[in-house]
Simulated assay, not measured.
Amino acid sequence: MRYFVPLGFILALAGCADSHNWTPQQNGSARIAANDRILISTPQDGEYGTHVYNGSGRNTAKIIYNATSAKSRLVRIGGVTENFEDAVSQAQRADQDILIFPTILHWEDRATEWSMIPDKVDVKVDVVDVRTGGSSVPV
């Protein structure tokens, strides 16, 4: 009996675990150097139907920040941008080398803890060399 309580607690925590599956679909050969100054644009919040998931854009930018900051210490998160051109302008004004421009394509936040239906999120990420104005490389 005394083993059931800790086991139940562990199972409850496992059901609440957060996981992110990163499935890159690289269409180019862009490389980010350790000394590149990187700006991550904050995407608009994700939506599903009429429901807007407040904070999902900031959460997306933070996830990308955490993954990118392992390669460079010169990473920062920018403000919410309406469109790609505004994000490029923001990166140029901030004298950044690389712009990472994520776009939330689909966001479904499920009650995974009890329904066991996983969340569904699709994010398009464009990486742009701001110095050359090079074309974006969707990742």
Rank of each mutant, 00 (worst) to 15 (best):
T81W: 00
E108F: 09
F4H: 15
V88T: 05
W107P: 03
R76Y: 05
V80P: 01
G15E: 06
D36M: 04
D129E: 08
Y53C: 01
A67F: 13
I104N: 03
D109N: 10
W114S: 14
T23C: 06
G134K: 12
T103Y: 00
P118C: 01
N66K: 14
Y53S: 06
G46Y: 00
V80L: 06
I10G: 03
G8D: 06
Y65N: 02
S19P: 04
I77Y: 02
V137H: 06
R93Y: 11
N66F: 10
A34S: 11
S135V: 13
T68V: 11
K124G: 02
F84E: 11
F101P: 00
W107F: 13
G133I: 05
T60Y: 00
D95E: 12
T68P: 03
V75T: 05
L105D: 08
E82P: 06
Y53N: 07
P24Y: 02
Q26P: 10
F9W: 13
P6C: 03
G55D: 06
D18F: 13
D126R: 07
R2W: 11
A14H: 07
V52M: 08
V139F: 08
R58P: 00
G49Q: 04
S69H: 12
L39A: 00
G49S: 03
D119T: 08
R2I: 12
E82H: 12
G134V: 05
Y48N: 14
R2P: 04
G79R: 11
Q90A: 15
A70F: 09
G133E: 01
G15C: 07
I117C: 07
L11I: 12
H106Y: 13
L13K: 08
Q44N: 12
Q44D: 07
K120M: 06
P102K: 02
W22V: 13
E108V: 10
K120W: 06
S56F: 00
V137Y: 05
I38Q: 01
V123L: 00
S89P: 05
L11R: 07
T68K: 08
A30I: 14
R131T: 07
S19E: 14
V137S: 08
R31E: 14
A14N: 09
A30Y: 12
E108G: 06
V128K: 08
T60H: 01
A30G: 10
G46P: 03
L99S: 04
D45C: 01
G57M: 03
Q26A: 07
F4Q: 15
I10N: 04
D95A: 12
R31Y: 11
